[in-house]
Design a binder for these strands. Structure first.
Length: 154
DNA sequence: GCCAACGTTGGC
DNA sequence: GCCAACGTTGGC
């Protein structure tokens, strides 16, 4: 059992969009970074804990608790010729990009980036490190516990 | 395999 | 919209 922080832009898929989807589940499409892909493809297991993070928006922060709901499979958007995630080098025989499904567990009162930054216990969190732009990062179990038990309300 | 150029991320 | 940081690309 591992824990992850996964960033999504609310203008694309926010916590309320996720809540409105069938099974409250979304394919985590569009990841085009190898390290993030490898986390999904090689390490994620069904049931892993996910912090659903809103990025690139007015109020960045953790917006919900979710879980990994599938193992990795080829990201359908890499084959969509007219889509923004099309990859001409990918073929169905040799896909390049993979995604898992992520299912909402519960929406929470936003734990803002500012709160995370001012919490000494979370100093080591990868998301808070200078220059980190990885959209999927592993979470220390201790950080998961601290955040879900001490910072999450609602 | 180096590395400059370029594109993207994402907070502010 | 700015810009620092970082990843990827492609010429050599």
């Amino acid at each position: 059992m591992r824990y992850w922080l996964m960033k999504s832009e609310p203008a694309d898929v926010g916590i309320d969009d996720l809540a409105a989807l069938p099974e409250q589940t979304v394919a985590w499409y569009g990841v085009r970074n190898y390290q993030a892909r490898n986390f999904m493809r090689d390490q994620m297991q069904i049931g892993d804990g996910v912090l659903f993070y809103h990025s690139n928006c007015a109020q960045p922060g953790i917006a919900g608790i979710a879980r990994v709901a599938s193992t990795a499979y080829p990201d359908a958007t890499q084959f969509q010729r007219d889509g923004k995630y099309f990859d001409p080098k990918a073929t169905p025989e040799t896909p390049r990009w993979f995604n898992v499904d992520v299912q909402l567990v519960k929406k929470i009162e936003l734990v803002s980036l500012a709160t995370l930054r001012t919490t000494p216990e979370l100093e080591q969190m990868r998301i808070l490190q200078r220059g980190n732009h990885l959209s999927i990062t592993p979470l220390d179990p201790a950080d998961w516990r601290f955040i879900t038990e001490r910072l999450v309300r609602g």
